[in-house]
Amino acid sequence: MKPFLAVMALTTALVAPELAMAKQVTLTTTLNNYGGDGAYLAFYVTDANGAYKGSLWMAGGKSKYYEHLSDWFRATAGNAAEINGITGASVGAGQSLTVTLDLADALFDAGYELHIDAAVEDMRDSPSEVVIPLTRDGAGQAVRGRRYIETFSYDM
């Protein structure tokens, strides 16, 4: 999948107001061959207490399925404004998704966590399939998801 240059909604607090205070971050997610249709993935950030701060990316276009991304859905009540302009296609089994976006410097090494919720039609929902702290040292280190994600890493 080609990298996206995310055009992030201004309402999300995560966007850097000026480029000088921002880092270009690339999120790379590779799915395993779980034997199902395309997966919906929600990328979002919480603070150290687990409180939702904002969304980074939504892979999957039909809002009727968002309730299966249950942690994200619980935090946002499925509010479409949270992912306005940062939505792409669902990701097939064994495929990779690469998203590039500008993230505020202040998000790193400040206790924030990146979550990925995953859901596949007729298969088990997997909320918080990946949860990793956002740190400068953690960049480039691949982690494994619980069910569907073979590897995930962020690079800057």
């Binding site: 039909k62 809002s63 009727k64 309730e67 249950s70 619980r74 009540a77």
Partner: peptide, 16 residues
């Protein structure tokens, strides 16, 4: 029609 959201939808889960 349901898949493409043409029909009205009331399927959202209740709030946590």
């Amino acid at each position: 029609a349901g898949t493409f959201g043409v029909l009205p939808s009331d399927r959202a889960a209740p709030l946590f």
